[in-house]
Write a protein that binds this DNA or RNA. Structure first.
Lengths: 171, 171
DNA sequence: CCAATTTACTTGGATATCCTATAGTCGGTA
DNA sequence: TACCGACTATAGGATATCCAAGTAAATTGG
């Protein structure tokens, strides 16, 4: 997807870690490496997801939005709730919905009793694209992420505890 | 840092995973959750890093650039090499350097023998800011990431193998 | 030795994210 | 009831990232 295909001769994160240790920051060298590798792995996974979604003219942000709607019980949701569930800023939701609406995948509808609120509803086309894009992600990314099975379980466990501790949700 | 402070009553990633399982995608439910949690943990860590760097008028991207320069042996580097080491697109480096140059932290210098190339050099101010910002990140983020010590080791191990398998570097 | 290719960087355009500020609405309280 | 604070969404502005295309220079091949 990107021009960053250059394979390096050595692991730049391992080198950074050695730099930290060389400066005497031995205590924080490992956490520094962990944080940096989370950043890099996210970058790799995001690029792969975007690649899979490209034929559907979806970005990952847009996919997340229509997937959220397609899995919701009533197939509709307040923008404020979508913002909370996707954990993104309200203005980002506005932006994403603008584009999904322009693409004909989502509709904005007024809320029955609260004139401030906006209901998001998937169009038929939106529903179809959400289903197909999810299938593509399952087949082309999630079926073979590059993590070993045991590692998937560890990542889920470690990151769930981390997110809980960061205040993402109450246990 | 952001307005996403809303604590949810339930873990949205766990809910997504249940949705996947409910649809019969049991094989890919766990990897899907793992990929999604990498995205979310990166978002949390990036926000915390940006918060620490805010007093230095640095974004994380700019910090990474001046940190890279400050740890390099000759305190200077080709833009192309910085792009490869930071694993970002050359145009992103151009953008980052424009801003660092405007802030007086970095200088562009012509390469002695290759007139296409641009050498990046830290200014004295850039060197000072890099040192202080690194100290702040060590004290305020890396010293207490929110990962338990054993988890840090696991994350480093799992993600190093993942990155190697993704072609990030040769072992 | 010159043409074709590759490399290094920049420019312009798109998308996503955040923040600040604002308009309109809802609700509790004096 | 009238007001004021809180909530919902949007507009405008900043930053970061990517891609496509362009410029200039170095390298390679015939």
């Amino acid at each position: 997807m990107s021009k960053r295909a250059t394979e390096l001769s050595r692991d730049p994160i391992a080198e950074a870690r050695r730099n930290w240790e060389r400066h005497g920051w031995t205590e924080v060298a490992a956490p520094m490496a962990a944080v940096t590798s989370v950043m890099r792995v996210q970058q790799i996974l995001l690029a792969r997801a975007q690649e899979v979604l490209k034929p559907f003219r979806l970005t990952f942000a847009r996919y997340e939005m229509i997937a959220l709607l397609s899995f919701s019980r009533e197939k509709q949701m307040l923008m404020s709730k979508a913002s909370a569930l996707l954990q993104v800023h309200p203005t980002s939701v506005t932006n994403t919905v603008d584009r999904l609406e322009a693409a004909g995948l989502v509709e904005r509808r007024p809320h029955a009793s609260d004139r401030r609120a906006v209901l998001l509803v998937l169009t038929d086309e939106g529903r179809r694209v959400a289903t197909e894009a999810t299938q593509a992600l399952n087949d082309e990314l999630f079926a073979d992420t590059g993590f070993e099975a045991a590692d998937v379980a560890l990542v889920n466990d470690i990151f769930t505890r981390f997110r809980a501790r960061s205040g993402d949700f109450s246990l």
